[in-house]
C-alpha cells in the first residue's frame, strides 16, 4: 500500500465536488447556531460523532471489500430523509468520476455500472480507497475528516470566519477524529461475521430536519 495515496484522497482539492456542500453548516449559520469558532467546533463535534461515524463505518467496510451494493442499502436505511440521500448519491457520482480517473479498477467499474446515478459517497470513497491500495482505517479517516472539514470550510465563506480559526477547530477535533475513524474501522471488521447491522447507525435529528428545510430554500450558497 501507499500511504501517500491517502493524502491524495483526503486532499480538499481532490476533484470530487465536496466544496459545493456545507454539510448542514449553511442552515445552522442561518439559524444562528454557528456564529464563531466555538459554535463551529460544537457543531462539527456533533456531526462527526453521528453522520461522520456512520460514514466512517460504511467507508471502512467498502475498503475492506464488502459488497458495496449491500453497503449502499445500509446507507439508505441510515439516511431517513431524501435530501441527504440525494446529496450522498450526487457526491458519490462525482467521487466515482474522480476515482476512476485516479485509481482505475474493476471494483469501481462494477459499482459505477450497478449504480449509474451514484452510490452513497462513503461507499464509493471506500471502494476508491481499496482501489488505491489503502486500508479500511485509512478510508474511515478520509471520510471522517471530510465530514468536518466541509462544514469548517463552508463556515469560512458563510461567516467570513478567519481561516486560521477554522483550521484550529479541525485541529482541536483531532482526538475525536481518531476515535471516530477507529470506531468505524472496528465496526467494519465485524461485518464479515455480523453483516451490515454491525455498522454504526448514529442519527442526528437536527441534521435531518434542517437538511430538508435547506433543500427548500429558493436561494442558497451551498447545494446542501
Amino acid at each position: 500500500m501507499s500511504r501517500a495515496a491517502l493524502l491524495v484522497l483526503a486532499d480538499g482539492r481532490f476533484p470530487a465536488g465536496g466544496h459545493a456542500h456545507s454539510g448542514g453548516a449553511e442552515p445552522a449559520v442561518a439559524a444562528g447556531h454557528i456564529k464563531d469558532a466555538v459554535t463551529l467546533e460544537r457543531f462539527c463535534r456533533g456531526r462527526l460523532h453521528t453522520a461522520g461515524l456512520v460514514a466512517a463505518g460504511l467507508a471502512a467496510a467498502a475498503a475492506a471489500g464488502h459488497d458495496p451494493l449491500l453497503l449502499d442499502d445500509a446507507a439508505d436505511a441510515r439516511t431517513p430523509v431524501p435530501a441527504l440521500r440525494t446529496t450522498a448519491r450526487k457526491l458519490g457520482r462525482q467521487m466515482m468520476r474522480a476515482a476512476r480517473a485516479t485509481w482505475p479498477g474493476p471494483d469501481l467499474d462494477a459499482l459505477a455500472a450497478a449504480r449509474p446515478r451514484g452510490a452513497h459517497q462513503p461507499v464509493v470513497l471506500g471502494v476508491a480507497a481499496r482501489s488505491a491500495g489503502l486500508e479500511p482505517l485509512d478510508a474511515a479517516y478520509a471520510v471522517a475528516y471530510e465530514n468536518i472539514s466541509g462544514p469548517a470550510t463552508a463556515a469560512v465563506r458563510l461567516l467570513s470566519l478567519d481561516p486560521f480559526d477554522a483550521t484550529a477547530v479541525l485541529a482541536r477535533l483531532a482526538a475525536d477524529l481518531d476515535r471516530v475513524a477507529q470506531q468505524g474501522a472496528d465496526a467494519a471488521a465485524r461485518v464479515a461475521l455480523e453483516g451490515t447491522d454491525a455498522l454504526p447507525a448514529a442519527s442526528a435529528p437536527l441534521l435531518d430536519i434542517t437538511a430538508e428545510a435547506h433543500a427548500a430554500w429558493p436561494v442558497r450558497l451551498f447545494a446542501s
Partner: peptide, 21 residues
C-alpha cells in the same frame, strides 16, 4: 433493512447536545 437508527444522549455520548443533533 428499511430503517436503522441509533441515538445516544446524555453522559458518555459525545456531541449530542449540539446544533447538529
Amino acid at each position: 433493512t428499511l430503517l436503522d437508527q441509533e441515538t445516544a444522549y446524555g453522559p458518555g455520548a459525545p456531541g449530542w447536545d449540539t446544533a447538529a443533533v
